[in-house]
Write a protein that binds this DNA or RNA. Structure first.
Lengths: 341, 341
DNA sequence: AATGATGATGACAACGCTGTCCGATCGGCA
DNA sequence: TGCCGATCGGACAGCGTTGTCATCATCATT
């Protein structure tokens, strides 16, 4: 092993190329202003020394924020989040920006701590999936010029752009579809429940039920917030009752898979209609009908919005809704079992 | 909307607190050396001004690398990659480091470009899932003191730590299991095939077959590198032949799901035994036997190794193998159909 | 030939922070 | 009371880059 080398700086390159450091700087910034011969000489020297401009110093000098965008997501375990992350990364890479990710494990108190860590890195914009009840702690930062974009859920007590899904419409459509098939006892299960998305989805479910004259939906709702409760068990409980539902809408992919496990354990449950919110990789193989949307597009749009805001911070904030649609694959088109009604 | 504010600096805080900027600096670094009363005064002032230390300046001054770790992954679409990312993030967060991610879309030429972008950010270490045939372009950087850790596949032409799976053992075990059930015509399908992991897995498969006296395995191998080829079709082709295999091992989760789709399309294929490499979320619901491992642990270990290397760059590089194990869920325990043998 | 316009290059300071070094302050002890 | 040591605060420089401004050579124009 040879000894530790020093990292080359602009000055080192300048000395080797026989020019001033400013000229080298120009070569790596506004190449236009330097004569071709000099550019060549500098580049040769830079390559010889394996020079790489120090973006720390560059960004410091340039006054603050970097070309790095921060993204605070919930737990990485959920495919939804990382597909959003993928979309963000794609769009940022296309524009020469880097992505700094942090997770909160979906706990509210983690959010501010994590945001602080990201902001200390002088990120150029902050994307987040809000978990805490209150994002006012970001107000100061926003004021300082860091754009904040809320994804999936609007920020609370903070002026920020937001990208959300058509939660209400999706749930309404799914419920209506089941009602049209003749179902009356339609359950809605989710965990966690105390988040914006679920509130909207439940509202869509209730509205559709109400439109069909069914008002006592609370009997079929299973809105749980205990993270340790197994989705499978929640669904199993629902169908162990005498007046078991004939159909169920699951509020997210974890719950959908939980329902599938519960059905599998029961064995007799091929008769139960199921529509899940969120698509997932093997939903087609399993024949599961879902309310789908494009999480990658969600991420891409969020990134695009962030980049726009960096360019032009003023202007009214937007709240954009992304479409959801029903994908029929089998489980959602099952009519109620004979005599169940 | 009120106008743009200025970001507070150490000096601003110092002025408000009536101390020197160095004292404020100490409060945010070695709090020990400052009297409690002063600490309090400084913190109050800092809070009033919404001061946040500028880590750009700090890291620049402290001489180079940051507390940010870069991770180059393939496409984010694959659950394997993001679960590794999740593990990395967990471990880094625990140690006060941030994670900068970049993707290459699994194209070799993207890798160096992306690595360059990350290294310009003066990351403290680089984790990557090698895609290119040659990582020698990182040699200079490694020499400059940036630890490089290869994940899932060893780096080529570069001295670097590596974390890989027991690919050979896993495939050997799966193949042996199928052989023990009486299967002889066992296929192996994967795409892409020209990567380290697949080479190892194929080797494990061949060795197990050879141990059972079967040497013409090329008849059952479907090693494809055309990314546009649909996994489903590849498997379908394999089973459309007269001497169709009675069992198949799929080289990764995409191929496993492709096989399930192909089987589903055929309808008669419940008889075909299947063991897939990589676990996935609904494998239990689908009853799919797999060669499993813990991708999150892989990420965690990689991060831990990186942090170790930052602390103590010298020392011999390690190549660590993480265990794989067979999970029996149904498809892998099917004996060959009557008369098939 | 004198003039201004143009283009290429360099000197210098500063971005916000911290390491080094030194000076100020205070309590305790003779 | 005076002095010493311990402890805490501050002045200064510099990390690697870029913005500003100045300098100088070259060239076209009258």
């Amino acid at each position: 092993m040879s000894g530790q080398q020093q990292r080359a700086t602009l000055d080192d390159v300048a000395r080797l190329a026989g020019v001033s450091s400013k000229t080298v700087s120009r070569v790596f910034a506004d190449r236009e202003l330097v004569s071709p011969a000099t550019v060549e000489r500098v580049l040769t020297a830079a390559k010889r020394l394996r020079f790489r401009p120090n973006s720390l110093a560059r960004n410091l000098r340039r006054g603050g924020s970097t070309n790095t965008i921060g993204f605070i997501m919930g737990e990485l375990g959920n495919p939804f989040y990382y597909k959003v992350a993928a979309g963000i990364e794609q769009e940022l890479a296309r524009n020469g920006h880097a992505l700094l990710v942090a997770t909160t494990d979906d706990t509210p108190d983690g959010e501010e701590r994590v945001a602080d860590a990201l902001l200390a890195q002088r990120i150029g914009a902050l994307l987040l999936i809000p978990v805490a009840d209150d994002q006012s702690y970001l107000e100061g930062e926003r004021h300082l010029g860091t754009p904040v974009i809320a994804i999936d859920r609007p920020a609370r007590n903070l002026v920020a752009d937001a990208l959300v899904l058509e939660n209400h419409r999706g749930a309404f459509e799914a419920t209506s579809r089941l009602l049209a098939l003749g179902h009356r006892r339609i359950a809605y299960a989710c965990n966690p429940a105390a988040v914006y998305t679920q509130a909207e989805r439940v509202r869509g479910y209730r509205d559709a039920m109400a439109a069909a004259g069914i008002h006592d939906t609370h009997r079929w709702e299973r809105l749980v917030d205990d993270r340790s409760a197994a989705p499978e068990q929640l669904v199993a409980d629902l169908f162990a009752r005498d007046d078991a539902p004939t159909a169920i809408i699951t509020g997210n992919n974890r719950m959908t898979i939980g329902a599938l496990r519960a059905f599998r354990a029961r064995g007799d449950a091929d008769a139960i209609a199921l529509i899940g919110f969120d698509d997932f990789d093997t939903a087609d193989v399993l024949g599961v009908s879902v309310i789908s949307y494009d999480p990658v597009a969600l991420g891409r749009q969020a990134a695009r919005l962030a980049l726009e805001r960096i360019g032009e911070p003023a202007g009214f904030t937007k709240q954009i809704e992304l479409p959801t649609w029903l994908v029929e694959r089998g489980t959602g088109e099952r009519p109620p079992a004979e005599g169940a009604q």
